[in-house]
Amino acid sequence: MKIDDWLIVQRDNGPLLCSIPHAGTSIPEEYARDFDSPWHATRDADWWMPELYGFLKDMGATIVRTEISRSVIDVNRDPSGTSLYPGMATTGLCPDCDFDGAPLYRSGFEPSQSDIERRRQAFHEPYHAALSQEISRLRKLHPAILVYDCHSIRSTIPRLFPGILPNMNIGTNEGKSCGAGLGEMIRTICEASEFSCVLNGRFKGGWITRAHGRPADGVHAVQMELACRSYMDEPQSGLNEGNWPPAWNPERAAAIQRVLRTVLTEAMSWIGTPKETWANDV
């Protein structure tokens, strides 16, 4: 099902709902002229998330994703504009700078408060309404479900975090967005792999995880933030239009895909949804 060509819902009946909020690179024409360049406005996208998680179709997963660039509006931010990480550098609901702190807009063309409100109503509200609708639908089919929020980010961004980010960054809002022990179980799987990992480190889960995770109601939410080097070849020098983003390479991504599939399989079993209930005809 496609809604207005920007909000995409791929519906299935398993107990897994996957959100892909930052892979979009579409910028409506009314906003495009205000950015300093189309490349810059899409540079910080979570590249190749639909391709990386292509195996979800075999797991009976429902997927909600947006084609809108996070530079237009970030549907994983608190709609009030309140920072999810007080005291730390981050980007806002309608960011005026990129991850490195460089301005995204031409001088004087930054979105006003009324612009932000219009974008919130046009994109943020429908995205979360779609998530809520699918959560309600799937909960009628299963005693518990997993909301899994898919993300990626460059491995080195000094403004946001020191050093090199671990490959796999698991966020459960300090254990509030899912049942006790689920985050630790996922961490154990990741630690047994070739990839480095951390639980509730720099990325503890954004607004999607925090707003929709209700473990007492059978809705367990987890964010997975992957360092881009986990599945593609990050440039060794500065980013430019010639080297970013690297092309999608399924062979390069295969190793992390195996770990991600195991994480999701074991997480669904952990929340009490046996594999035989994942079929499409529940």
Rank of each mutant, 00 (worst) to 15 (best):
F109G: 05
A253S: 09
E67W: 02
G101F: 11
P126V: 13
T209F: 13
I170K: 00
T62Y: 07
P86N: 13
I170A: 05
T42F: 11
R137G: 07
E51K: 02
I116S: 05
C190G: 04
C18A: 10
G181I: 02
R137Y: 10
D281G: 08
L104R: 06
I116D: 05
C94D: 09
E276Q: 12
E29W: 06
G171C: 06
M232K: 03
L226H: 07
G183E: 09
V9A: 02
V259N: 11
R229E: 12
A32G: 01
T42I: 13
R118I: 13
Y31I: 03
F161A: 14
R137L: 07
I73E: 02
R202G: 01
A61H: 04
W47S: 10
D36K: 00
I208K: 00
V9N: 01
D115M: 04
A254D: 15
A45R: 00
F99W: 11
P246H: 11
P215T: 12
E117R: 06
T277D: 13
M168R: 00
R202I: 05
V147E: 05
C97L: 01
I153W: 11
R187I: 01
P95H: 12
T265F: 15
D4S: 13
I145A: 03
M59N: 11
A102K: 05
D281C: 10
G206C: 09
D58Q: 10
H212E: 05
D12H: 13
P111F: 15
I20T: 08
C18L: 06
I20F: 12
I170C: 08
G101A: 06
G175N: 01
A122S: 15
Y53T: 01
L226C: 11
H212N: 03
S71K: 01
H128M: 00
A221I: 00
D149W: 11
E191P: 02
R187S: 07
E134W: 11
R252G: 13
A61Q: 06
Y148V: 02
M185F: 15
N13A: 13
T42W: 08
L84Q: 14
L16P: 02
Q133P: 00
G24F: 08
R187F: 09
G60L: 02
D281L: 11
H22W: 04
V219G: 10
H124K: 00
L52G: 09
D36V: 01
S230D: 04
P250W: 15
T91F: 14
L52H: 04
L84C: 09
D149S: 10
K204L: 03
P38R: 08
P215S: 12
A32D: 09
S177D: 06
